[in-house]
Design a protein around this nucleic acid. Structure first.
Lengths: 174, 174
DNA sequence: TATTGATATGTCAGTTTCTACATGTCAATC
DNA sequence: GATTGACATGTAGAAACTGACATATCAATA
């Protein structure tokens, strides 16, 4: 039971917001779970097909535009629940931002500072987006915990970038 | 120029700590950049071969146990620098912890709380590891900025898990 | 001298993900 | 009637990654 994240995200969305098509799920992904897990339609469609073949979801009749509606089965429901409750290992980290942080000392101080300032701004911009979303949802609704986590995450990144830039600047001047 | 992270991590390690073998680099990975980017030897060896073929590194003569020593070339150096300074897009997020956070409301309150407490503990344990490393390095040395980031990251996760558990408990009781 | 463990390098099959290509429907507007 | 844009589904090739298998050397110890 490893690397089932996309599966679980899809089962979760289907459970939380009801039966949907691949197209719907792609949209739901974008507007909700996207800041925790990314996937595009070219990943979602084949995955849904596999899940249907394995009995985790059922496919309804084709709608007007070839639309197919997926519904979670008992088995899918059980699998999701088990995954949430049981799974305890961390999938190995892979964070490009942190990697850049690691490699930062290879740059000249001015270059590092410029880079960090740019990144702090980018984090702040994304943060503003999530905070707006938070305002809209008034801190309630399905994705709330994850949204809170996302906001904390971006705040932390923004602060780290800013403070590190300050520190490098100070060290270079000192 | 996308998805070159492993390459850049390797060029960075070779630049920072000097020429090394694939074996060395695997070790260096484990003990330094691993909390920012993960890769095992089965990924590292082929990547080094490709990099040598593309002129980003040179291979020295084979040592006693078939050991091959890699050194960064001018071209490799330039590529790394450009990547660090130029690249500005974020690779889409994929954070299993955040995904679980998103799906949390699908569990019963007691289950959520238990899960979050467990996770808070796991984060705290990993945090202790990094903080020990910080003590050893006395806040100086190559990976320092990334280590600081890692520590902030884990602190944030631990706090989020703990506070979210409290909140759910309170809501369930209320 | 036999075994163990660290050094050292690889391959391979399978899975996941990325980017781009490809196709067609339907409703509304121009 | 033509165009545009949202709806809707896919495929294909490549790259990245995972986990297991495979092999061999050398030093130290049992």
């Amino acid at each position: 039971m490893r690397g089932m994240s996309l599966r679980m995200a899809l089962l979760g969305l289907l459970t939380a917001s009801g039966p949907a098509s691949g197209y719907d799920l792609t949209k739901r992904f974008e507007s909700s779970v996207n800041h925790a897990w990314h996937a595009g339609h070219s990943q979602i469609y084949p995955e849904l097909a596999k899940m249907a073949a394995e009995g985790l979801v059922t496919v309804g009749e084709e709608g007007p535009r070839g639309r197919k509606t997926y519904t979670v089965t008992e088995e899918g429901s059980r699998l999701l629940h088990d995954w949430l409750v049981t799974k305890e290992n961390f999938r190995p980290v892979r964070d490009e931002g942190a990697l850049r942080a690691f490699l930062l000392p290879l740059l000249e101080p001015e270059e590092s500072v410029a880079l960090l300032r740019r990144e702090a701004e980018a984090y702040a911009a994304r943060l503003a987006g999530l905070e707006a979303l938070w305002q809209v949802k008034q801190g309630s609704g399905f994705g709330t915990y994850a949204l809170d986590l996302g906001i904390r995450q971006l705040r932390m990144m923004r602060d780290w970038a800013g403070e590190t830039a300050d520190r490098i600047e100070h060290a270079a001047r000192g």
